[in-house]
Simulated assay, not measured.
Amino acid sequence: MEGADRYRVVRWVRWWWLRRHTVVDLAIAVVAWPPSLGLAVTAFGGGLPVTLLLSVPLVTGLSVAAYFRRSHPVVFFAVAMLAAVTTANVPAVMFALYTYPAWRPDRATLAVLTAVAGIAAVSVDAWYVANTPAALVIRLVMFVLSPVLLGLWIGTRRQLVDNLRERAERLEREQHLQAERAIVSERTRIAREMHDVVAHRVSLMVLHAGGLEVSAPDGRTAETAALIRTTGREALTELRHILGVLRADADGPPLAPQPTIADVARLVEASRQAGVDVAYEVRGEPGAAADAVERTAYRVVQEGLTNAAKHAPGAAVRVTVAYRAGAVAVTVANGPPGPRTAPPLPSGGHGLVGLRERAALIGGALSAGPEPGGAGWRLTAELPLNLPEHDSEG
């Protein structure tokens, strides 16, 4: 089948599916009109003009009511009862008794309609036929209870299918929401790791290039170092824009091995090689800490060293990891900056925000502010060593 033919078939199927009830009801109204007119003509008898004058409006009204039977089932039942009483059109009443429970959940109204149809059937049977009680019961079952039970079954099945469809759609929406939350969490994790790792490394590279530019033995080396420093600064600026796009207000689980407190010494040594005067001290007896605490402590030192290099170039920096009973305090303090030989490095402003979120999630606290007297800056994190299982990032 060609693409155009397939498209036409799909359009036709969609058109039919959206209008199937209207088409079916219109077909019922048109097909039922001739036999209903035949029953009316037979019932009224008499002259043809008078018979048609009585039959055509009644039958036409019955067909119109049948077309609107889903939206106005009570009206359809009333017109069908009138046709049954005047023209013995019992099938119309049976169809009306089927329609109401198939499309309406109101069981009280259904009971009233069933009772009215039953009383009418009993009255007509007693007046015209005078059948035995057994025959009367059979007629009630066939012409009243059977269409009602069929309508109840169809209506219950339709409600069940609708409920299942609604539940499936709700589950699908929930799956989409969970997938979106997972994407946001992963983007946030990537943004934080990029800030913690890539931005820190690029900052050190820029510092190395700045130092080489100042102490270069020849002009070509200085020019190359300046180019590296400028390129690194541009990369940091672009990285800040990327982090602004990726960052969200949620946190996701890390998907790769993360550094710990044991890696702080290596971090300090890398800063020393970049020309930063860093003193590192460990106080107290190191104790076993939760993975989340290890990672957060490392990130605090990393952020503190990066901020010192950015905002206080040439300042002496002190890194202290102090173990106490059930807790560890991580402090990064720097003195006043020295003379600035290069423009300040770009900053995204999310580092401390992310660290506060990390510390709060594991039950710790983060403080940052100037040293007493304003001579320098101090970043301190107070973190518990042991965490409840549900609070751990690992």
Rank of each mutant, 00 (worst) to 15 (best):
A130W: 01
I242G: 03
T231D: 10
D125T: 07
R157H: 10
V79T: 09
G210R: 15
L110D: 15
L355P: 15
R220M: 01
V141A: 14
V13A: 04
A225D: 08
Y100R: 01
A360D: 11
T51A: 14
E393D: 08
R70T: 07
R240Y: 04
V50R: 06
E393F: 02
L246N: 14
L58N: 04
G232Q: 11
A342P: 03
Q273V: 09
L152D: 09
G304S: 05
A250Y: 05
Y298D: 05
L160N: 07
T260P: 01
A126H: 02
N163I: 08
R340K: 05
A84G: 06
V268D: 08
R358E: 08
P35V: 11
R139C: 03
A381K: 12
R356Q: 14
P346R: 07
L150F: 10
F95H: 01
D277Y: 09
V321L: 11
V319N: 03
T224D: 14
L136Y: 00
T221I: 13
Q258V: 10
T331L: 02
A191C: 05
G369H: 02
L352M: 04
V30G: 15
V129D: 10
L267S: 02
E281M: 12
V9N: 13
V206C: 07
V276E: 06
W15L: 07
E357R: 11
A102G: 02
A102N: 11
R14H: 10
A27V: 10
V264L: 04
A216D: 00
G275T: 05
E234V: 09
D218R: 13
G210P: 03
E180G: 03
E285A: 13
E2R: 03
Y67I: 00
Y7F: 01
A115S: 06
V116C: 13
W377F: 15
P257H: 00
M81E: 14
P372E: 11
P346A: 12
P372D: 09
V24C: 06
M81V: 15
N163W: 15
R104T: 14
V144F: 02
G349V: 05
D249I: 06
D263N: 00
I28M: 12
W377H: 15
A182C: 00
